[in-house]
Every structure is written in C-alpha cells, then in structure tokens.
Amino acid sequence: MSRIVKTPQPPYYAVIFASQRTEGDNGYGKMADKMVELAAKQPGFLGLESARNHELGITVSYWRSLDAIKSWKENSAHQVAQERGKTEWYENFALRVCKVERQHFFEM
C-alpha cells in the first residue's frame, strides 16, 4: 500500500504481520493482491498498510473488532493462503493483534 490509512477514532484493532519470504514468487504476488481485495470486503475491515524490502515484510491491517479479525482468519480463501504461506512463501512470520487506544496523524 502506498498511503497511510485514515482510521476512525479508537478503539479498534491492528493485526501486525511481519514476515521473511522464501526465494521466488511462486504465485505470492497474485495471492497477496487477491487477499487485499477480499479483506477490503470483510465486515469490520478499516484499512491496510504494507511495506517490504528484500529481507522483511510488514503488513498492518486495521479492524473494528476482535470478531471481525476472527471472521477474516476463518475465511476459506484466506485459510488457503495461510496454508500456502506456511508451506511455500514464508521462511518465518509473526502475527500480533493489538488494541489501538490512541492515534495521531500529521500531514503537510
């Protein structure tokens, strides 16, 4: 994503996904695009920010509630992507769920 997401007033939740990829694309880019499109249609989805260099990727998705996060985790297409991530695309990853209680934005 190329912009900072404008989220509503807290509280809401952030899911932080940090990962190190395996070599090659192996369909990763196409699936990642599909997951962003699908997540955006999920009830409670507030937005997403993502950055990756050659060593580390970090994606932060924002959600209205823990139930919305649970529904996304249980989405059947997302489960397929999760399994492929474990078997094909990631050397390792970490997933953290946080409650956002305060926020500040700056724009020029």
Rank of each mutant, 00 (worst) to 15 (best):
P11E: 06
S61D: 02
F45V: 05
L95P: 00
Y12N: 06
A32K: 06
P10M: 05
F105M: 12
A81E: 07
V100T: 09
Y62P: 00
E91K: 09
K34G: 01
Q82G: 15
D67E: 15
D67Q: 15
E49M: 03
I4N: 01
E107C: 05
I4Q: 09
G85F: 00
A40Y: 06
S50R: 10
Q79G: 07
L95S: 09
K99P: 04
K73P: 04
E55C: 04
S50F: 04
G27I: 07
W72V: 11
E101A: 01
R3E: 14
E88G: 01
Y12D: 04
A39E: 10
E37K: 00
Q20I: 14
K73I: 10
F106W: 10
A32I: 03
V60Y: 00
P10S: 10
L56S: 04
A51Y: 13
F106D: 08
H104E: 08
E88P: 10
M35H: 14
K34N: 12
S61T: 11
R84N: 04
S19A: 10
E107N: 13
E88S: 13
G47A: 07
A77L: 15
A18M: 07
L48C: 11
R21P: 04
P10D: 11
L38N: 05
R3P: 00
A68N: 08
N26Y: 06
S71T: 07
K6G: 00
S19N: 07
L66W: 11
W63L: 03
D33I: 03
V100C: 08
T7I: 03
A81M: 13
I4Y: 00
A39I: 15
I58R: 02
T59E: 08
V97A: 11
E23S: 14
E88Y: 10
K73Y: 12
F93T: 01
E91N: 12
G47W: 02
I58C: 02
I4E: 05
W63R: 08
H78T: 11
D25M: 03
R64K: 14
T22S: 03
E55Y: 03
E49Y: 02
G24K: 02
W72D: 15
H54V: 08
D25R: 05
E37G: 02
K34H: 13
K34P: 01
M1F: 12
A81K: 04
M31Q: 06
R21E: 06
T59N: 11
E107P: 01
S50T: 12
W63E: 07
W63G: 05
S65Q: 14
S76H: 14
R84D: 01
E23Q: 09
H104P: 01
M108N: 09
E101W: 14
S76Y: 14
P43F: 02
F45Y: 11
R102G: 10
E107S: 15
Q103C: 10
A39V: 13
R52G: 08
Q20E: 14
S71R: 13
Q103Y: 04
K6D: 01
D25V: 09
D67Y: 00
N75L: 15
S19I: 00
R64T: 11
L38H: 03
E49H: 05
K6E: 05
M1C: 05
K73G: 10
V15E: 07
T7D: 02
Q20A: 13
S65W: 13
K70H: 03
Y13T: 10
N53C: 05
Q20D: 12
D67R: 09
A51K: 04
Y90A: 02
F93P: 06
